[in-house]
């Protein structure tokens, strides 16, 4: 669980050698807080195979706008520098893990 900013996004996400799960959240979003344990669990499960980063959209609205995030929580999966899949709304650890596996397998 690695917080990224507009400045570090390219390094941490677009140029990442591993696929990346980007978790968009905001301090006002109680559903995001509810999903945080699931994101944390996925970060542990995928350590070494994929990375997990978080974006505070209140602090970085430009990243939200760029990713067309208009609902929270939201997740974007990056592989080889491009978004390959997005999820909107709360997801369980199982659902996040299943989607991440598909991204790693190249199914998306």
């Amino acid at each position: 669980m690695n917080p990224v900013t507009s400045d570090s996004f390219d390094d941490q996400v677009r140029r990442s050698a591993l696929p990346v799960l980007v978790d968009f959240w905001a301090p006002w979003c109680t559903r995001c807080a509810g999903m945080e344990p699931a994101v944390r669990e996925v970060a542990t499960t995928f350590a070494g195979r994929g990375s997990v980063v978080t974006v505070d959209v209140e602090a970085h609205p430009e990243l939200a706008a760029e990713h067309l995030v208009l609902s929270l929580p939201a997740v974007a999966f990056y592989r080889d520098g491009a978004v390959v899949r997005t999820l909107a709304g709360p997801r369980s650890a199982e659902e996040l893990a299943a989607a991440f596996e598909e991204v790693l397998d190249g199914q998306h």
Binding site: W28, C29, T30, L70, L72, G89
Partner: peptide
């Protein structure tokens, strides 16, 4: 959904 359609005003 998630692109402007929402079920939660306080969230989005």
């Amino acid at each position: 959904a998630g692109r402007g359609v929402s079920w939660c005003g306080t969230c989005d």
